[in-house]
């Protein structure tokens, strides 16, 4: 049964990939990429990688499709047909693919318990997590505690991406000429969106605070938060969304998340431990770990949500092809 599901899903993934390459209508392509991400999330579910599946679900189904659409809204709707045959690139790609497949022949079989990846540090993490960190989700303990330094680096990368988009595109605060009738006709959507908006934020909080026990954590929660605000912007207009969450505040929040993370690390040093050592944060090492993980996950969530919204606002507040074109939001 497992094999059948694996093979069918991989097949569907491949077919969708080919269809994306063949299709010229970019709106249809964005629709297909969101289907593609549905299939890859399903594969992660089959592989039992709950946290990765949740990330793929949160990013692939919502944010990445929306950012692709924002790009399509700024450029053209149809891909140009290339005037030349791309035989040489095809050859290069085929050779690289063949070399990669040849490389996998030496790799240990899928699920082999003797594979290096299962014998290196993973057994220690799995054995020591219950008493050292005390959270049921080992992925969270590895990400946030054992490898907390790496995750700090990742959050910094995300923050840098947000700074980069701000520097290149900027979020234009100028007074927008929004036609209110544009959004008046969306009565059904506006009512539904208003009903769902608090539920999405609530679920984001659940994912954030429940990351120790179930799938999820700061990163996924941040993406879900941002999706909630994007839904608001789509149904109530960019002007209203900017009033709810001003872009200037977003810049501060993006920095605040990284600072909160680093501050937890420095607090550990001040209390006599090492950088990002949570054991010293409370009287009991395990509750110190809990507190530290919760704080840094909150920091990650704040930065991710703010950066995604900066990128979204940066894209949609630009007007396609000059100042007088239509509002792409």
């Amino acid at each position: 049964m497992q094999y059948l599901v694996d093979i069918v899903l991989l097949g569907l993934l491949m077919i969708t990939g080919f269809a994306i390459v063949r299709m010229r209508s970019l709106l249809a392509v964005t629709m297909l990429t969101s289907i593609y991400s549905l299939f890859s999330a399903l594969l992660f579910v089959v592989l039992d990688a709950v946290d990765v599946a949740l990330t793929e679900a949160a990013i692939g189904a919502g944010i990445s499709t929306i950012l692709l659409l924002a790009t399509v809204a700024l450029t053209t709707e149809y891909e140009k047909v290339p005037g030349h045959r791309s035989l040489l690139p095809l050859l290069v790609v085929t050779l690289t693919g063949a070399a990669l497949i040849y490389g996998t022949l030496d790799m240990p079989h899928y699920g082999d318990p003797n594979a290096p990846v299962h014998r290196h540090v993973a057994p220690e993490y799995i054995e020591d997590t219950p008493e050292e960190v005390g959270v049921p989700n080992v992925v969270t303990s590895v990400l946030a505690s054992y490898r907390g330094y790496d995750t700090l680096g990742e959050v910094t990368v995300i923050f840098t991406a947000g700074v980069g988009v701000l520097a290149l595109l900027g979020v234009h605060l100028r007074k927008r000429t929004e036609q209110p009738h544009d959004y008046k006709m969306l009565v059904v959507l506006r009512v539904i969106a208003k009903l769902l908006f608090p539920l999405i934020l609530l679920f984001a909080l659940y994912v954030l605070f429940h990351g120790d026990y179930g799938p999820g954590g700061g990163f996924q929660a941040g993406v879900i938060f941002a999706t909630g605000f994007v839904l608001y912007a789509l149904t109530h207009g960019l002007g209203n969304a900017e009033r709810v969450i001003p872009p200037a505040l977003l810049g501060v929040l993006a920095a605040a998340g990284v600072l909160l993370y680093a501050a937890v690390g420095i607090e550990g040093m001040l209390l006599g431990g090492k950088f990002l050592e949570y054991n010293v944060l409370a009287d009991d090492p395990v509750s110190g770990q809990h507190l530290g993980i919760l704080l840094i996950e909150t920091g990650v969530g704040i930065t991710v949500a703010a950066v995604i919204l900066i990128i979204y606002f940066g894209f949609v507040s630009r007007r396609p092809g000059g100042a007088d074109a239509q509002d792409p939001s």
């Binding site: 964005t30 969101s34 549905l38 499709t65 539920l199 994007v230 839904l231 789509l234």
Partner: peptide
């Protein structure tokens, strides 16, 4: 369930 329809609205 909560967020997949957002991209549909965006399209």
């Amino acid at each position: 369930v909560l967020i997949s329809f957002v991209s549909t609205i965006a399209v």
